[in-house]
């Protein structure tokens, strides 16, 4: 748990939770997904069972709307705690594919969407300036930031996990075929 407290700005004061469930009843995702239970994320983390949260797929269904955190009567930064746990899951190679795609696009254009020909035409139509004068500066900065902060390493692990999983599944298939 300590490591999450360190990552979140300020003190989450996670032990102050009295399990009232305000976070859960305020959560948009929890209204549709019974497995998504922020109240349990907090109690598990506070009682040293954070690995159960980190390894669950449910962790990635947070909308980041911050309503849980805003309404917590104990001032616990629930949303920030969840994000810190997502960061830890990512370090363990558990980041969903979506983020690998985002990182890849960012390294191509410095933005999450590219300034392609169609864009130029549409901008011209509305009397907007061309903005792509020096995209290489952007790309260079983003690439360097990614190198310095090691974000790409997260996805090498994802790839590694995926390959190991596929290998295992293939072996299982082979065994089944042999019987």
């Amino acid at each position: 748990m300590e490591r999450f407290l360190k990552e979140v700005p300020g003190d989450t004061g996670i032990n102050a939770c009295y399990q009232c469930g305000t976070c859960m009843s305020s959560c948009p995702t929890a209204k549709f997904d019974r497995k998504y239970r922020p109240r349990l994320f907090v109690i598990k983390t506070a009682s040293g069972r954070e690995d159960e949260v980190i390894k669950s797929d449910a962790l990635w269904s947070c909308t980041t709307c911050y309503t849980c955190q805003e309404r917590c009567p104990r001032g616990i930064k629930v949303a920030e705690m969840i994000m810190a746990m997502q960061n830890e899951a990512a370090r363990q190679g558990r980041a969903p594919e979506k983020f690998a795609r985002t990182v890849s696009v960012l390294q191509k254009s410095g933005l999450t969407s590219e300034l392609v020909g169609f864009v130029r035409k549409q901008r011209e139509k509305l009397g907007l300036d061309a903005l792509d004068a020096t995209p290489e500066v952007r790309v260079d900065v983003v690439k360097k930031i990614f190198d310095e902060t090691g974000i790409n390493r997260l996805f090498e692990k994802v790839k590694g996990r995926k390959e190991r999983k596929e290998k295992k599944e293939n072996e299982e298939k082979k065994e089944e075929g042999g019987v």
Binding site: A84, Q86, N87, A90, G110, T134, R138, V141, I145, E148
Partner: peptide, 26 residues
């Protein structure tokens, strides 16, 4: 207009707090 700004970092905040922070600070 801010020239040569980069993405604010939000899209990758969930996977790397540090990368996000550097992008925003830039």
């Amino acid at each position: 207009d801010m020239e040569d700004y980069i993405c604010c970092g939000t899209p990758i905040e969930a996977v790397s707090h540090r990368t996000w922070l550097v992008m925003a600070a830039y």
